[in-house]
Protein backbone atom coordinates (compact mmCIF):
# COMPACT_ATOMS: atom_id res chain seq x y z
CA UNK A 1 0.00 0.00 0.00
CA UNK A 2 2.71 2.45 1.07
CA UNK A 3 4.78 1.92 -2.05
CA UNK A 4 1.71 2.15 -4.31
CA UNK A 5 0.82 5.58 -2.93
CA UNK A 6 4.38 6.85 -3.09
CA UNK A 7 4.67 5.74 -6.70
CA UNK A 8 1.28 7.07 -7.77
CA UNK A 9 1.51 10.57 -6.35
CA UNK A 10 4.06 10.95 -3.56
CA UNK A 11 6.85 13.51 -3.51
CA UNK A 12 9.08 10.82 -2.03
CA UNK A 13 10.20 12.52 1.17
CA UNK A 14 13.97 13.09 1.20
CA UNK A 15 14.30 11.58 -2.28
CA UNK A 16 13.12 15.02 -3.37
CA UNK A 17 11.71 17.86 -1.26
CA UNK A 18 8.65 16.12 0.20
CA UNK A 19 9.72 16.63 3.80
CA UNK A 20 10.16 20.36 3.21
CA UNK A 21 6.73 20.73 1.59
CA UNK A 22 5.18 18.72 4.42
CA UNK A 23 6.77 21.03 6.98
CA UNK A 24 5.22 24.08 5.31
CA UNK A 25 1.81 22.41 5.17
CA UNK A 26 1.95 21.59 8.87
CA UNK A 27 3.69 24.66 10.25
CA UNK A 28 1.88 27.31 8.21
CA UNK A 29 -1.34 25.50 7.17
CA UNK A 30 -0.30 26.01 3.55
CA UNK A 31 -2.22 24.06 0.95
CA UNK A 32 -0.10 21.84 -1.27
CA UNK A 33 0.34 24.22 -4.19
CA UNK A 34 1.31 27.14 -1.91
CA UNK A 35 3.67 24.94 0.11
CA UNK A 36 5.37 23.74 -3.07
CA UNK A 37 5.68 27.27 -4.41
CA UNK A 38 7.20 28.40 -1.11
CA UNK A 39 9.77 25.61 -1.05
CA UNK A 40 10.54 25.99 -4.75
CA UNK A 41 11.24 29.69 -4.26
CA UNK A 42 13.56 28.98 -1.32
CA UNK A 43 15.45 26.43 -3.42
CA UNK A 44 15.47 28.54 -6.57
CA UNK A 45 13.65 25.83 -8.50
CA UNK A 46 10.26 25.25 -10.13
CA UNK A 47 7.48 23.28 -8.43
CA UNK A 48 8.07 20.41 -10.85
CA UNK A 49 11.80 20.38 -10.12
CA UNK A 50 11.39 20.05 -6.35
CA UNK A 51 9.77 16.63 -6.92
CA UNK A 52 12.52 15.58 -9.35
CA UNK A 53 14.94 13.08 -7.81
CA UNK A 54 17.61 13.83 -10.40
CA UNK A 55 17.75 17.46 -9.36
CA UNK A 56 17.13 17.04 -5.66
CA UNK A 57 19.61 14.21 -4.96
CA UNK A 58 22.69 16.36 -5.47
CA UNK A 59 21.10 19.54 -4.21
CA UNK A 60 20.17 17.92 -0.91
CA UNK A 61 23.75 16.74 -0.40
CA UNK A 62 25.07 20.15 -1.29
CA UNK A 63 22.65 21.88 1.09
CA UNK A 64 23.40 19.29 3.81
CA UNK A 65 19.71 18.62 4.48
CA UNK A 66 19.79 14.81 4.43
CA UNK A 67 20.02 12.40 1.53
CA UNK A 68 18.16 9.19 0.95
CA UNK A 69 21.21 7.05 0.23
CA UNK A 70 23.86 6.28 2.83
CA UNK A 71 26.58 8.89 2.46
CA UNK A 72 29.24 8.86 5.20
CA UNK A 73 29.67 12.33 6.62
CA UNK A 74 26.43 13.71 5.20
CA UNK A 75 24.35 15.33 7.97
CA UNK A 76 21.35 13.36 9.15
CA UNK A 77 18.87 13.73 11.97
CA UNK A 78 19.16 16.90 14.04
CA UNK A 79 22.09 18.26 12.02
CA UNK A 80 20.18 18.00 8.74
CA UNK A 81 17.07 19.47 10.34
CA UNK A 82 19.00 22.48 11.65
CA UNK A 83 20.06 23.19 8.07
CA UNK A 84 16.43 22.76 6.94
CA UNK A 85 15.31 25.33 9.55
CA UNK A 86 17.59 27.94 8.01
CA UNK A 87 16.80 26.95 4.44
CA UNK A 88 13.02 27.25 4.62
CA UNK A 89 12.85 29.67 7.55
CA UNK A 90 10.93 27.51 9.99
CA UNK A 91 11.43 26.22 13.52
CA UNK A 92 11.70 22.48 14.12
CA UNK A 93 10.75 21.23 17.56
CA UNK A 94 13.51 18.64 17.97
CA UNK A 95 16.13 21.23 16.99
CA UNK A 96 14.76 23.71 19.53
CA UNK A 97 14.97 21.05 22.22
CA UNK A 98 18.49 20.08 21.12
CA UNK A 99 19.58 23.68 21.35
CA UNK A 100 17.98 23.96 24.79
CA UNK A 101 19.83 20.86 25.98
CA UNK A 102 23.22 22.04 24.71
CA UNK A 103 23.10 25.60 26.06
CA UNK A 104 25.95 26.35 28.37
Amino acid sequence: MAVSHFMASGMGGIRSAGDLVARMQFSKNMKNDKAKEYVAKKLGLSTIEIADEHIMRELREELKIGVVTGVPGAPRGIAAKMNIERLIDTKINSCEIFRGLTKR
Binding site: A2, H5, F6, G10, M11, S16, I48
Partner: peptide, 15 residues
Protein backbone atom coordinates in the same frame (compact mmCIF):
# COMPACT_ATOMS: atom_id res chain seq x y z
CA UNK B 1 -1.79 -1.89 -14.39
CA UNK B 2 -0.83 1.17 -12.36
CA UNK B 3 -1.55 4.82 -12.94
CA UNK B 4 -0.04 7.96 -11.45
CA UNK B 5 -0.42 11.71 -11.37
CA UNK B 6 1.14 14.00 -13.93
CA UNK B 7 4.56 15.44 -13.00
CA UNK B 8 3.96 18.60 -10.99
CA UNK B 9 0.84 17.19 -9.34
CA UNK B 10 2.69 15.28 -6.62
CA UNK B 11 1.36 15.56 -3.07
CA UNK B 12 2.46 14.69 0.43
CA UNK B 13 2.21 11.10 1.61
CA UNK B 14 1.75 11.21 5.38
CA UNK B 15 1.84 7.77 6.94
Amino acid sequence: RIVGVEPGNEVIVSY
